[in-house]
Structure formats: structure tokens, C-alpha cells
């Protein structure tokens, strides 16, 4: 048994997430990961925007900042810049980070600022009633696409990699031990770390797409996710409909707050 109580704001429970929503599973994995890394609560800051996933900081007893829609990364950049020693963790969703906050997302990745982003991908705007989000898959039904979405979705991990993130990974709420491991790696990595977490919404997405029961969504994750090792050995035909999980990209690049400190040092020496 893992004792979560010292890390949560118990008075705020039960949480608001729907029955079977994976967001609670991520929260628990995050708590175990930070505990495993020995991060003291005073050394951690959790920043979120708006949406279901962004309610996460309200349940964790660390330094937390619940900000405006799409702007979690902007606030987090300020926090990290002011106090580079803090572990800054952004909790955001597919709509929050890649629609309204899309610009902050690509530029934080471009700067390679040392922030860990846990991006919960639930494939929809869950909280506001199931509108099409940037990750709703083509053909999926949503309240604003009753006959199926005609848009291709964003590959949000690919977007972060292309924009310059030094660490990109994907996990899901079925494979919980792996998720915990990926969160640890993302936090430990110096630079912009993006962890996309598949946490499909049972209420607004699943019900419209023949997966109305949380168990069906978990079975879908079990059957469609494949490890990187397995993915490498698969043919294009076998990869159809499968989603790879694990570390997708991991490189060393100069980090923003380090570069800033170097600049300050250089200018002081020139004085």
C-alpha cells in the first residue's frame, strides 16, 4: 500500500473527475513518481491552465498555481525563470496546451526551458461538453461533430519534438507502472520534457464513440498501445491503429535558464 494522504488535499476529495476518468490514475502515478525521486513538496511547483486535467493541482499539497486557459506554460516559464532550482511541473490537456495555448507550447519547447509538461490527451474538450479538440481523431463523433470529425488531429508529441523539446514521451493510464517510470524520466530530464498521457474521456468522448464504459476505454488502451521495442519490429500494416508508448525522443540541448545565467555572468565580467 502506498500512502497518498500526506500528498493530497484530502478535504477536496472525492475529486470532480467522472467515474472511470484516467486523470485520477495519472495523479496517483505523479505522486508516486515524485515520492520515488525524493522531491520535497517545497521544491515542487505544479502549474495548470483550464480544463479537467488542469484541476489536478487542486488535489496535491505542493506549491500550486491554477492559471488562465492555455497560459500554464507562460506562468510556469516565469516561475522557472525566477527560481531555476524549483521542479516546475505543468499539468495541461490537449485543448489547453495545443489549441488556446498552442503558441506557448511551441515556444516553451523551442526555448528548451527546464519544465516538465504532463499533457493529458483525452481526445476532446471534456469539461465544456465534448467539442472537437485538436486531438479528436478524424471520424470521431463529438458534440460539434455529430457526424464525425473531418479534421486530421495534431500529433502533439511530434509537434513538441519538431519545436525543439529535448525529451518527448508517451504513456497511458492502463500501463500504470510504465507511466510512473516515464513521469520520473520526464522530471529528471534537464530541458523541456513533454509527456503525452493518453487518458481518454469516458463521458464526452467514449460515450459518443462506442466506448461508453471506462472499462472499454481501458481495454482499448491495453489493445492499441505498443512499446517502442515492439513498434520497431512491426510492419507498417501491423502498426495500423496502434499507438506507440515510451520514450520517443531524448537529446541534450542547451537549456534556457542555464543560458540566461551564463549571459548574466558574462555581462557582469565585462563590467
Amino acid at each position: 500500500m502506498f500512502d497518498y494522504l500526506p500528498y493530497i488535499r484530502e478535504w477536496n476529495f472525492p475529486h470532480i473527475w467522472c467515474s472511470g476518468c484516467g486523470d485520477g490514475i495519472v495523479l496517483k502515478a505523479l505522486i508516486r513518481a515524485t515520492d520515488g525521486l525524493g522531491i520535497h513538496r517545497d521544491e515542487a511547483v505544479m502549474v495548470s491552465g483550464i480544463g479537467c486535467s488542469s484541476r489536478t493541482p487542486g488535489y496535491v499539497d505542493v506549491n500550486t498555481l491554477h492559471t488562465t486557459h492555455g497560459r500554464a506554460l507562460a506562468f510556469a516559464t516565469g516561475v522557472k525563470h525566477a527560481s531555476p532550482n524549483l521542479n516546475v511541473i505543468v499539468v495541461t490537456g490537449d485543448g489547453d496546451a495545443t489549441a488556446i495555448g498552442g503558441n506557448h507550447y511551441i515556444h516553451a519547447a523551442r526555448r528548451n526551458i527546464d519544465i516538465t509538461v504532463l499533457l493529458y490527451n483525452n481526445y476532446i474538450y471534456g469539461m465544456t461538453g465534448g467539442q472537437v479538440s485538436p486531438t479528436t481523431r478524424k471520424g470521431d463523433r463529438a458534440s460539434t461533430a455529430p457526424f464525425g470529425s473531418i479534421e486530421p488531429p495534431f500529433n502533439i508529441s511530434g509537434l513538441a519534438k519538431a519545436a525543439g523539446a529535448s525529451f518527448v514521451a508517451r504513456g497511458d493510464v492502463y500501463n500504470v507502472k510504465k507511466l510512473e517510470k516515464l513521469i520520473k524520466l520526464a522530471i529528471q530530464k534537464k530541458g523541456f520534457s513533454l509527456l503525452e498521457i493518453l487518458s481518454p474521456c469516458p463521458t464526452a468522448w467514449g460515450r459518443r464513440n462506442k466506448m461508453g464504459h471506462p472499462v472499454q476505454l481501458m481495454e482499448w488502451l491495453r489493445d492499441s498501445t505498443v512499446s517502442m521495442e515492439k513498434w520497431e519490429k512491426m510492419t507498417d500494416e501491423e502498426r495500423e491503429g496502434k499507438i506507440r508508448t515510451g520514450v520517443l525522443h531524448d537529446v541534450a540541448r542547451p537549456e534556457f535558464t542555464d543560458e540566461y545565467a551564463k549571459l548574466v555572468k558574462r555581462l557582469k565580467a565585462e563590467k
Binding site: Y4, W17, G24, I25, Y174, V176
Partner: peptide
């Protein structure tokens, strides 16, 4: 521990 690990609601514990 799979039930405890996957419970989204912090509702089940095993010891």
C-alpha cells in the same frame, strides 16, 4: 496491487 494502482478515485488499498 493492480486495483490500487489503477483506481482513479484513491478508493481501494491493499496491504
Amino acid at each position: 496491487m493492480l486495483c490500487e494502482l489503477r483506481c482513479p478515485d484513491f478508493a481501494i488499498t491493499v496491504e
